[in-house]
Amino acid sequence: MAAQSGKDMLLKLDQNGSGSFLTVAGLRTRSLNFNAASVDTTDQESAGRWRELLAGGGVKRASLAGSGVFKDQASDALIRSLFFAGTIRNWQLILPHFGVVQGLFQIVALEFSADHAGEVTFDLALESAGEVTFAAA
């Protein structure tokens, strides 16, 4: 498989809960992280005193992050309103030639910054708030 262009990795937000997704405009970087906490079941009878883990146990979570510049009033305004209201909404991350990650996420951080001689930028962090699915391309 050939290398994939980063510009094709898209973060999309369900605008009003109806399944109508809007691409978050102006993003220069995007990232996705999956984590799973393990459940230690080691006891005095564990073979060789090696740690044992419970298969399928623990809590899974996904984190999405992005940063960029403001370009689109519709997505910018929606992101700000969702953050200040603490709203959980359906999001998608399109991974080119790989698939789509989708689920409920809450915006947990929204940061604005600017340089005197540059553009206003923003950083966005989301945490999963329910089951996250993956559909292969």
Rank of each mutant, 00 (worst) to 15 (best):
M1E: 12
A2W: 15
A3I: 08
G6K: 15
G6R: 15
K7C: 09
M9N: 03
L13E: 04
L13K: 01
D14H: 12
G17E: 04
S20K: 06
F21W: 03
F21E: 01
T23K: 03
T23I: 11
A25T: 01
G26L: 06
G26M: 02
L27H: 01
R28W: 00
R28D: 11
T29Q: 07
R30E: 02
S31H: 05
N33K: 14
N33Y: 01
F34W: 11
F34M: 03
N35W: 04
A36Y: 00
V39H: 06
V39A: 09
V39E: 04
D40Y: 13
T41K: 14
T42M: 15
D43R: 12
D43Y: 11
Q44G: 12
S46P: 11
S46T: 08
A47H: 04
R49M: 15
R49C: 12
R49E: 07
L53V: 13
L54S: 06
A55E: 10
G56H: 00
G57D: 05
G58E: 02
V59E: 10
V59P: 00
K60S: 15
R61N: 13
G66R: 00
S67W: 04
G68Q: 03
G68A: 04
V69Q: 09
V69A: 12
V69P: 00
F70A: 05
D72L: 03
D72W: 03
Q73C: 03
S75M: 03
D76T: 09
L78R: 14
L78Q: 10
I79G: 01
I79D: 02
R80Y: 04
R80G: 09
R80C: 13
S81K: 14
S81W: 03
S81A: 14
F83Y: 15
F83E: 04
F84I: 06
F84H: 11
G86D: 08
T87C: 07
T87P: 05
R89I: 09
N90C: 13
N90P: 07
I94C: 04
L95H: 06
H97S: 12
H97T: 10
F98M: 10
F98S: 12
F98I: 15
G99M: 09
G99S: 14
G99C: 11
V100L: 07
V101H: 01
G103E: 08
L104P: 06
L104N: 10
F105L: 09
Q106L: 09
V108M: 02
V108H: 01
A109N: 13
L110V: 02
F112L: 08
F112H: 14
S113I: 05
A114M: 14
A114C: 07
A114E: 14
D115M: 12
D115I: 09
A117P: 02
A117Q: 09
G118Q: 13
G118C: 13
V120D: 06
V120A: 08
V120N: 04
V120L: 12
D123L: 01
D123M: 06
L124N: 00
A125D: 05
L126S: 00
E127M: 00
S128P: 04
S128N: 05
S128M: 08
G130F: 10
V132N: 01
T133N: 11
A135K: 12
A136T: 13
A136G: 07
A137I: 00
